[in-house]
Design a protein around this nucleic acid. Structure first.
Lengths: 245, 245
DNA sequence: CCTGCAAAAATGTGATCACATGGCGGCATG
DNA sequence: CATGCCGCCATGTGATCACATTTTTGCAGG
């Protein structure tokens, strides 16, 4: 077993980080995925280091890794921020999610066991529960976990890291639109996906996954369009250099 | 314009790195892509630093970034190496390349100008020339560049970084099989792709790209299968700890 | 009151050091 | 001669320092 950088999949299956850098990375990744970091806001190494109570070294490497995953963007000023979102980029990200996740789901089918399905049902239950409790952090997390369990069924999948990169890019803008979503849309798609899994119906699974991504995103897209009137979403100009915290 | 970290696309369009770390990263990325680093061989920070005549710091960050891009793998011993290849993983990588690159090509169509086509023709010419000269480095590089020019036609494409990650994962094993390839197979597919581009025929382009990837890979797959008799391709066990060089 | 310049503070980058971990070989013991 | 233990060496990790670049602040001149 190789050391993961504590990816989402690793978190789902429960691993503990051995290095400080991995803890910092996992923490930042989580914050980005859950939309807890303001897009456009500049992240400073020293600021984060002070906030987390570690030296600059682990933070530097974590930031570098997140830049490589496109969760963060290295500007020309050498400063790091969450990349601003545009309609074109958002459209690209969703298109990439759809082709990758649909294919990943189909390729996971041979590895799907009852245990995998059970774990997905568990995540789906968490989603329901979080929705009733208005716990958006948990809602988003479980939503990703639902998918991660499926794609992660394939032992050394090359798909999952790519998909996680896409999630990290979309994540910061999910939360901002999530409150405007009516609420019950994804559950149906998840049920569809689970039903397809039980029947081992690959084509139906593809359709359910694609629909899930599209549905969940339609509202957000319109939210983006509304915000678009103001130009780029957060960070058109170099954000204020407020030390993060 | 944001600092790119000197990706393949950035190299194609010609940019100069401003930091040491970016130079190291670009150099390592190139060596990996061209298959100049032995799979399974452990890369040491100090070894690379000494080899490149820089301190450990830029090397550390470059390695971290390459780990994030899955070009390198962080083992439990905290050593870094090129991930061993298995048939399953190779199959995954090719499947991912096909769905991503076909989609990226289709989405690039609206942005295709005569200048883009001209640049692709130029890369294609380089491929021919390199093939006659038996210059495999140039051959592989131009081959990737051919695709990069196309996908890079889209301004802020989210696809290109994902695709580059896949190239980096496949690269180390391309060269090892390339000598066994008959030779003239891709040229036809590239001609097909160029013809489709001139006609602005998106569907034909998809087919050509997919065929290009499949054709170029079929022979390599069989090479892998032959090597598979020996177990994993390079690095089944932790590689020898020879300092790189 | 606005503008532009210069000093000062903040930040990223590169280098180096101290320490913990892991790998390797030698050595003793059966 | 084989095997297991112990110590040394190489390596990754974290911390810190020096320096160049960038950003902010303060002030003078219009």
């Amino acid at each position: 077993m190789t050391a993961t950088g504590l990816s989402i999949a690793a978190e789902v299956s429960g691993e503990d980080p051995r290095t400080l850098q991995q803890q910092v990375l996992a923490g930042l990744r989580r914050r980005i995925l859950l939309g807890r970091i303001e897009p456009g806001q500049a992240l400073t190494i020293r600021g984060l280091a002070a906030e987390l109570g570690v030296s600059a070294q682990p933070v530097r490497e974590a930031l570098r890794q997140l830049v490589a995953e496109r969760a963060l963007e290295l500007m020309d000023n050498r400063r790091v921020r969450i990349p601003p979102m545009t309609i074109e980029r958002f459209d690209d990200l969703i298109a990439a999610r759809i082709v990758l996740e649909a294919e990943a789901a189909a390729r996971a089918m041979p590895y799907v066991t009852d245990e995998i399905i059970a774990r997905m049902e568990a995540e789906d239950a968490v989603i329901d529960e979080a929705e009733r409790a208005r716990d958006y952090d948990r809602w988003i997390g479980a939503n990703f976990a639902f998918h991660a369990v499926l794609y992660g069924a394939v032992p050394q999948s090359a798909f999952l890291p790519l998909i996680e990169s896409l999630w990290l890019q979309v994540g910061p803008f999910l939360r901002r639109a999530i409150r405007t979503i009516s609420g019950h849309y994804t559950v149906d798609r998840h049920s569809e996906a689970l039903a397809a899994l039980r029947r081992r119906d690959t084509m139906a699974l593809r359709i359910a996954i694609e629909a899930d991504i599209r549905d969940g995103i339609a509202h957000i897209g319109s939210t983006l369009i509304r915000s678009e009137a103001l130009g780029e979403i957060s960070g058109g100009v170099h954000g204020p250099s407020t030390t993060s915290r």
